[in-house]
Amino acid sequence: MQTIDINCDLGEGKTAADCARDAQIMPYISRCNIACGGHAGNLTTMQLSVANARRNGLLVGAHPGYPDPDNFGRVSLKIELGSLLESIWEQVNRLRDVAGEAAVRLDHIKLHGALYNDAEADRALAERLVGFLAEEFPALKIMGLANGEMEAAARRHRQPFIREGFMDRRYLNDHQLAPRSMEGAVISELDLCLAQALCLAQGRPFESCSGAPLQFSVDSICVHGDNPNAAAIAQRLLLHFQSQGIAVRR
C-alpha cells in the first residue's frame, strides 16, 4: 500500500488552551513540527505539545524560526549569521531537552515562516543552514520545500531530507511556490486542495498557477495549524487519502 506523511506546525500558541486546540488536529496527521521559543512557543506549550504528540503516536520535530515573536517570525530579520545559527541551536536544543524528559526522540527540523522562505530564495543561506544543521544535529532529518535550495543543499551534505508539498498553495512553472502576493497563489476551495494533495502524493500531473502541467512527488503534505478549521481539514485530507488506497503513516 502506498503511504504518505501529513505534517502540521503546532505549539505556536501561548497557553494550555492553545495546545488543547492543537491536540484536536493530531489524530489526523502523522508528524508535527513544534515551535521552540523563537517565533513562538514557551516551556508550557512545548511540554504539552510533546506530551500530546506522544499520546497520538506522532513523529516530533523542531520548528525554529527567526527569534522575532513580535512578528511571529513572518518578517525577514536582519541578523548576523552567527547569531542566527546560535538562536537555531538554542531553539532545537530547548525542544530536545523537553522531549527527552518525556522520553520522546526528535525526528526532524523544519524552519519556520520567513526563515523557510529566505533559505529558499538564497542558495548561500541554504548552504550555510544545512551545513550547520548537518554538523550540529546529524541524526535529525531536514524538512523543506520539494525541489528547493534546502533540498539541493541537503543532497550535497548527504543529510536525510523530507520533501514537503503544499495542498493549498499554487506552484510556479519551475516547481517553486507562487508568492502569496500573486493573485490565485492560495487555494481556498477544499476540494481543489484535496485534489492537489493527491497529485503530489502520487506524483501525478497537476496545474501550475499559469495552467502549465507540473509533475513531481513529495514525502509529506503540510496542513496549516493556524487555520481555524485545521482539524476538519486534516480529517478530510486523511479520509481522502484513505479512500484512494493511501495510508497516512509515520
Rank of each mutant, 00 (worst) to 15 (best):
A146K: 01
H108N: 03
S243K: 13
E120A: 11
K141D: 06
R55Y: 10
F241R: 02
A139H: 14
I246R: 01
S217F: 03
F241Y: 12
I162D: 01
Y116F: 15
Y66M: 08
L58S: 03
T45I: 13
M46W: 06
L106M: 00
D122T: 12
L192D: 10
I109N: 00
A16Y: 07
L198H: 02
V130S: 00
C8W: 06
E90Y: 15
S30Y: 02
F137C: 04
P179L: 12
Q24A: 15
L133P: 00
A17F: 12
S217E: 11
R170H: 05
R250I: 09
R94F: 07
A114L: 07
A16C: 04
E90I: 13
P205L: 09
P213T: 06
T15G: 14
G57W: 10
H63T: 11
L85G: 09
P179C: 07
G203Y: 03
F216T: 02
P228T: 11
N227K: 15
M143V: 13
E101N: 14
S76A: 14
C32M: 05
F166N: 02
N33P: 01
E189R: 12
V104H: 00
P179S: 07
N173S: 02
G144P: 03
Q24R: 14
L48F: 12
S83P: 06
I79E: 08
N227H: 15
E90C: 15
I187R: 02
L95Q: 01
N93V: 02
A234T: 01
R250G: 06
A114K: 07
M167C: 05
C8N: 09
V60A: 04
M26S: 00
A40C: 12
H224L: 04
V218W: 00
L172R: 03
Q202L: 15
S83C: 14
K110C: 05
G11A: 10
F132H: 00
D122W: 08
A40N: 11
A35D: 06
I109E: 00
G13H: 04
P205D: 09
Q47F: 08
E189P: 01
G225H: 08
N227L: 14
A139L: 12
G131Q: 01
R55G: 08
P64T: 13
Q91I: 01
